[in-house]
Computed example of a mutant assay.
Amino acid sequence: MTQTEDPPTASGAAQRTRTYTWQDPLIGAGAAPGLSGLDYLRGMVRGEFPPPPIGQTLGFSIGREEDVQKGKVTFHLRPEEFHYNPIGSVHGGVYATLLDSALGCAIHTMLPAGVGYTTLDLAVKYLRPLRLGMGEVRAVAEVISVSRRVATASAQIVDDAGKVYATATTTCLVMRPVHAPEPTQESQP
């Protein structure tokens, strides 16, 4: 990812540009159904599968393999100027996307191969502003429960000192494969 700042324009404001690259997300999506969620996410961290493009777009990622445990996932983000809203702090949508990603991945670590999930709801509480220059923050998500059809998790965005910037909870629909009914033998007359 590259960021540049061009010389000031006639209006006096510096032009800023940002360029980033990503890999084909369908490579990992194709491999995911054959692996447990834990194995898939750990493989992603090891570079065996491309990370999702949203991470490159917003500049967040799972940092190390230790950040993926059964029922717990940690994402890392350094607040940057391109995350800003019109009032000079990180946009709430960035918080929500970071938290939703960590929450979903924490739930994914609990699922066997062939089982997927999708977010049903996300509730975010914004407690403090994230700002440029404050250093890296982490979104730490932990599973609360997983049943046959529903999973729940909670998360926090924290800094290195442990200060909490936001909290979130989610409910996800667990999508298990539907097995075709067993063929029945026809009765003989």
Rank of each mutant, 00 (worst) to 15 (best):
G71S: 07
V68F: 04
D67F: 09
A113E: 11
N85E: 11
E142Q: 14
K125Q: 15
A141I: 05
Y117Q: 15
Q69M: 10
V94W: 08
G116P: 00
S147N: 05
G92N: 13
E66L: 03
V137E: 00
Q69P: 07
K72E: 07
L127V: 12
P129T: 03
L98N: 05
E65K: 01
F75C: 13
T118M: 05
G104K: 05
V137Q: 03
V124Y: 04
P79A: 10
H76C: 10
Q69K: 14
S145N: 13
A141S: 10
V150A: 12
R131Y: 01
R138A: 11
H91M: 07
A96V: 11
L120A: 11
G71W: 08
L122D: 07
A113W: 06
M134P: 01
V73Y: 05
H91G: 03
G71Y: 01
K125I: 02
D100V: 06
R138F: 11
S145W: 04
G114P: 02
G104V: 06
P112L: 09
T118A: 13
G135D: 06
D121T: 14
L127M: 14
A113D: 03
T118E: 07
Y117D: 02
L132T: 13
G116Y: 03
G71R: 05
N85I: 13
T97V: 03
G93T: 06
Y84T: 00
T97G: 12
D67Y: 07
T119R: 04
H108E: 12
